[in-house]
């Protein structure tokens, strides 16, 4: 009875791990799966294997996955004040924070397991594009929002496609640049 329940629960957690959209959650589901496997070994009177399974499956492998998830995480977005006479006032920051385009961009990267980190900067466009410090540079011009990304920026095409499908109040234009040429 307990055996059957444990095996069924293992199946449930395996399916959850495969189907969950957030990788971090999938890792935790896998850890629970391994823990249930260890419990099953105890039921089958194999405590040595149970210890090994618990330690490796839900300890070592979970930590390894967490360490791997840390790799590709922070995505730095710079929002420039070019359209606002190069002044990043509090009111302007509030206005930008509430704008729909920025919210959509944030949501886009959250769905992809990355942590969007938005920097409001008074730098000029040339300064922002130079170097490697920003992954995406956003400038609001009169009637449209311009996204500058280098050619190897993550998922720029998908971002462009998303804006083309959803649409925003202002037009969105994506400009690709070559960091070597520009810098």
């Amino acid at each position: 009875m307990i055996e059957t329940g444990t095996i069924l629960l293992m199946g449930v957690f395996a399916a959850l791990a495969i189907h969950s959209t957030l990788l971090r959650r999938a890792v935790i589901y896998l850890a629970v799966f391994s823990l249930l496997g260890a419990f099953l070994y105890v039921l089958y009177a194999a405590p040595e294997l149970a210890i090994a399974e618990a330690v490796i499956g839900s300890g070592l492998v979970t930590l390894l996955y967490l360490a791997a998830l840390k790799r590709n995480k922070v995505y730095t977005i710079a929002v420039l004040a070019e359209g606002h006479r190069y002044r990043m006032t509090d009111a302007y920051v509030n206005y930008l924070e509430r704008s729909r385009a920025l919210r959509e961009i944030r949501h886009f990267f959250e769905l992809r397991e990355m942590e969007p980190q938005v920097v409001f900067s008074e730098a000029t466009l040339d300064e922002a594009l130079r170097g490697d410090s920003f992954d995406l540079v956003i400038v609001e011009e009169q009637d449209e929002i311009v996204l500058y990304g280098s050619r190897d920026t993550f998922a720029l095409e998908e971002l462009e496609l998303m804006f083309r499908i959803h649409g925003t109040e202002a037009g969105v234009r994506v400009v690709r640049y070559d960091p070597e040429e520009e810098g």
């Binding site: 090994a52 330690v55 490796i56 300890g59 070592l60 930590l63 390894l64 967490l66 360490a67 840390k70």
Partner: peptide
């Protein structure tokens, strides 16, 4: 394996 987990936890 527990000791190895410690090393990895330290890294994380």
């Amino acid at each position: 394996s527990v000791l190895a987990t410690l090393l990895v936890a330290r890294y994380v």
